[in-house]
């Protein structure tokens, strides 16, 4: 899946509107090979945005009933920041069980994995995949793909924030001189060991600087980060 996900994420870079993003969410669901995928963001001033694959009838019902009040996923993730398998949430209590029964009738899977996201200035978002696999198959699935889910969650979030902000790309893509140095050396074909030595830092430090740059560039891996930095004119080689 890694290769397909990287390719998909690079393709998603072109999304310019929230409508585009909604289209990509369906594709992302297919890449993840799950029944449903949900991204939901709440900014500090209470503005909300969602891109999801649930049937609209379920979304309407959820909003109309204000199910966020009882939904263990929302209750367990809001204001928190650790990723969680739905199995670890508290599904006891009649109200919650009724809610879950209704959700499953509406096509929501009984398995789920949610990644809460804490962004800048108090922004909160939640990224969820849900499915109908058996317990054994689901355990195997999450074990293999948990990092992919975390990275995809943050990729979608940064893309959504970027769209919301408008065209002010350079502001966010401002890499520090040290990050530019590190990426420049990789672009010039230096190995990590050589780059670390030239910059007089450990390979551990270099790895973290490159990872920070990758995140800021919203790239799926180091190779793409270097390519994006070159495209944006941030590197001179």
């Amino acid at each position: 899946m890694q290769g397909r996900l990287d390719t998909f994420i690079e393709g998603m870079q072109g999304a310019e509107t929230l409508d585009d993003l909604q289209g990509h969410i369906i594709g992302l669901r297919d890449v993840f090979d799950v029944e449903h995928l949900v991204y939901h963001s709440v900014n500090a001033s209470g503005g909300q945005y969602a891109a999801l694959t649930y049937p609209l009838t379920w979304v309407d019902r959820y909003l109309e009933q204000d199910y966020a009040r009882v939904d263990p996923v929302v209750q367990g993730c809001y204001r928190r920041f650790h990723p969680v398998d739905w199995k670890r949430l508290d599904w006891s209590g009649k109200q919650v069980r009724d809610f879950m029964g209704e959700a499953q009738d509406a096509g929501v899977g009984q398995q789920g994995f949610s990644v809460p996201i804490r962004g800048p200035n108090g922004q909160f978002a939640l990224f969820t995949v849900s499915d109908r696999r058996t317990d054994t198959a689901w355990n195997k699935y999450t074990e293999r793909h948990v990092r992919d889910m975390i990275l995809a969650a943050h990729f979608v979030n940064q893309k959504a924030l970027e769209i919301e902000r408008g065209t002010d790309e350079t502001q966010q893509r401002n890499l520090s001189p040290r990050e530019v140095d590190a990426l420049t050396m990789l672009a010039m074909g230096y190995s990590r060991a050589q780059a670390a030595e030239s910059l007089s830092i450990s390979e551990h430090t270099l790895r973290v600087y490159i990872e920070s740059a990758r995140f800021k560039l919203n790239a799926s891996n180091t190779t793409h980060a270097v390519a994006r930095a070159l495209t944006l004119g941030l590197l001179i080689v």
């Binding site: 920041f81 922004q123 975390i150 600087y209």
Partner: peptide, 28 residues
């Protein structure tokens, strides 16, 4: 613990100790 994708003490106050690099990643 705080996630580095949000506000952190290191990035707000200690950038002079990280070569000026704001350390940000969902995995850190």
């Amino acid at each position: 613990f705080l996630p580095t994708t949000g506000d952190t003490m290191v990035n707000d106050h200690f950038a002079h100790l990280t070569d000026g690099v704001p350390i940000q990643s969902p995995l850190i």
